[in-house]
């Protein structure tokens, strides 16, 4: 379960995330939608412990991230939008490295788990090659292997479909659904409405750092006053076609 309480992130005068409060139940596949620059990645980075919030709290599995960072991170798997990795390690070595960080190097199931994940993400043949020779999509799939390696209770995923071919994208969607069915909470940011519509049970829309609507796709349609049709109409209606960047501040500068 994830709770965000008045979460705020400021960079000098600019407020990237503005008092966000959300509650995501265990086993939910939650979509975090918003236009470019709305504050999605900043929110996710704070949840993963990569960025420090200016104020507010992040509660994951009943633990406060600021008070018990190591314990919280132990039950999180984070997949960022850009897969920056250690290029001089092989895929296999990278997964061993991640296992070490989670102190599971001596776990009896580790070897089997690595083989299994590499097979699922179709990286077995590349396991002993250096990451520097991987394509963007392969690196993204390796990050997913790493995020799932320690069987996290919460998956935080930023734009997971970027750089993936249709087959890999299908695979990833199925894996996320499967994870949610098995009790893992998946918090996924995306700007792809098709992806959100297809896989998410609940959605929050963020704009200019604030959550402007949240609920099931049907709830959102109701709030937007759009009776039928896909999420695109709902999204455009709720955001009124604006970008995430504060247009007033841009025009004044």
């Amino acid at each position: 379960m994830i709770e965000l309480l008045n979460l705020t992130k400021r960079y000098r005068d600019f407020t990237a995330v503005d008092h966000i409060s959300l509650e995501v139940p265990q086993g939910a596949l939650f979509g975090f939608l918003g236009p470019n620059g709305a504050g999605k990645t900043t929110t996710l980075k704070m949840m993963a412990g990569v960025l420090k919030p200016t104020s507010g709290r992040i509660i994951i599995n009943g633990m406060d991230l600021s008070r018990q960072p190591s314990e919280v991170k132990r039950c999180i798997g984070f997949i960022p939008d850009r897969p920056f990795l250690y290029e001089k390690l092989s895929g296999n070595e990278f997964l061993q490295f991640i296992a070490g960080l989670y102190r599971m190097n001596h776990a009896p199931y580790l070897g089997k788990r690595i083989v299994e994940l590499l097979e699922i993400f179709e990286l077995s043949h590349w396991a002993d090659e250096l990451i520097e020779s991987y394509s963007h999509g392969m690196k993204q799939r390796l990050v997913m292997c790493a995020a799932l390696l320690h069987k996290p209770k919460v998956l935080i995923v930023d734009e997971p479909m970027v750089g993936l071919d249709p087959k890999a994208a299908r695979l990833v969607k199925d894996i996320f659904k499967d994870q949610a069915e098995n009790g893992t909470t998946v918090f996924m940011s995306t700007h792809s409405l098709e992806v959100a519509q297809e896989v998410c049970q609940e959605i929050a829309i963020i704009q200019a750092g604030r959550v402007i609507a949240s609920g099931t796709p049907d709830n959102l349609r109701e709030k937007a006053g759009v009776a039928t049709g896909n999420l695109e109409k709902v999204f455009l209606k709720l955001t009124e076609g604006k970008t995430g960047i504060d247009e007033k501040s841009l025009s004044s500068s």
Partner: peptide, 14 residues
Amino acid sequence: EGKAFWILRSSPLS
């Protein structure tokens, strides 16, 4: 650590 520093930041390693 370069741009891969996020791996350590998001891991339980203090």
